Amino acid sequence: MRLRVEFTTEPFDLDEPPPHAVAAREVVQGAGLDAVDVGPFGNTVEGGADAVLTALDALLRASLRSGATRVSLQVNVVPGAAEGGGG
């Protein structure tokens, strides 16, 4: 199974990325996922279910530890996609 996740961390800071956003970005960029797109208002990652779920656990822990007061997630199964990225 392949998963696509969209996530945001809050509170927002438009002047510079807050520590919780940097922590989340570092987790997903280092997780070996198939696709990672980070931006100022939302982030998307995709990969095999095991890899994505492992990365989400690390992302939540790192973001909350770094000052996030809210983390919003949307998890979707990618229909008909070939398995990849450890899952």
Results as ranks from 00 to 15, higher is better:
Met1Phe: 08
Met1Thr: 12
Leu3Gly: 09
Leu3Arg: 06
Arg4Phe: 11
Arg4Ser: 08
Glu6Ile: 04
Glu6Cys: 02
Glu6Pro: 00
Glu6Arg: 00
Phe7Ala: 05
Phe7Arg: 02
Phe7Ile: 08
Glu10Val: 11
Glu10Trp: 14
Pro11Ser: 14
Phe12Pro: 13
Phe12His: 12
Asp13Lys: 05
Asp13Leu: 07
Leu14Gln: 10
Asp15Met: 09
Asp15Val: 13
Pro18Ile: 13
Pro18Asn: 13
Pro19Ala: 03
Pro19Trp: 01
Ala21Asn: 11
Ala21Gln: 08
Val22Phe: 05
Val22Trp: 01
Val22Asn: 04
Val22Lys: 02
Val22Arg: 01
Ala23Glu: 06
Ala23Ser: 11
Ala24Lys: 02
Arg25Cys: 10
Glu26Trp: 04
Glu26Phe: 01
Val28Cys: 09
Val28Ser: 09
Val28Leu: 15
Gln29Lys: 12
Gln29Gly: 11
Gly30Thr: 14
Gly30Cys: 14
Ala31Arg: 01
Ala31Thr: 13
Leu33Asp: 03
Leu33Glu: 00
Asp34Val: 13
Val36Thr: 09
Val36Asn: 11
Val36Ala: 07
Asp37Leu: 03
Asp37Thr: 04
Asp37Trp: 02
Val38Gln: 02
Gly39Leu: 00
Gly39Lys: 00
Gly39Ile: 05
Pro40Asp: 08
Pro40Thr: 05
Phe41Arg: 05
Phe41Leu: 09
Phe41Pro: 14
Phe41Ile: 08
Phe41Glu: 12
Phe41Thr: 11
Gly42Val: 13
Gly42Arg: 03
Asn43Arg: 01
Thr44Gly: 14
Thr44Trp: 04
Thr44His: 10
Thr44Ala: 12
Val45Cys: 01
Val45Lys: 02
Glu46Pro: 02
Glu46Leu: 07
Glu46Ser: 08
Glu46Gln: 09
Glu46Trp: 01
Gly47Tyr: 01
Gly47Ser: 06
Gly48His: 00
Gly48Asn: 01
Gly48Glu: 00
Gly48Leu: 00
Ala49Phe: 02
Ala49Val: 14
Ala49Cys: 06
Asp50Ala: 07
Ala51Trp: 00
Ala51Tyr: 00
Leu53Gln: 06
Ala55Ser: 11
Ala55Glu: 14
Leu56Ala: 04
Leu56Lys: 04
Leu56Phe: 11
Asp57Pro: 10
Asp57Trp: 10
Asp57Lys: 12
Ala58Tyr: 02
Leu59Cys: 07
Leu59Ser: 00
Leu59Gln: 03
Leu60Val: 12
Leu60Cys: 07
Leu60Arg: 01
Leu60Ser: 06
Leu60Tyr: 05
Arg61Leu: 07
Arg61Tyr: 10
Ala62Trp: 06
Ala62Phe: 03
Ser63Gly: 08
Ser63Tyr: 10
Ser63Gln: 09
Arg65Trp: 04
Arg65Asp: 14
Arg65Ile: 15
Arg65His: 11
Ala68Thr: 09
Ala68Cys: 14
Ala68Glu: 10
Val71Ile: 15
Leu73Met: 14
Val75Arg: 06
Val75Lys: 05
Val75Ile: 11
Asn76Gly: 12
Asn76Ile: 12
Asn76Ala: 13
Val77Cys: 10
Val77Lys: 06
Val77Asn: 13
Val77Ile: 12
Val78Gln: 05
Val78Ser: 08
Pro79Met: 08
Pro79Asp: 07
Gly80Cys: 05
Ala81Tyr: 02
Ala81Gly: 05
Ala81Asn: 03
Ala82Ser: 12
Ala82Tyr: 15
Ala82Cys: 07
Glu83Tyr: 04
Glu83His: 04
Gly85Ala: 12
Gly85Val: 15
Gly85Met: 08
Gly85Asn: 10
Gly85Tyr: 01
Gly87Arg: 01
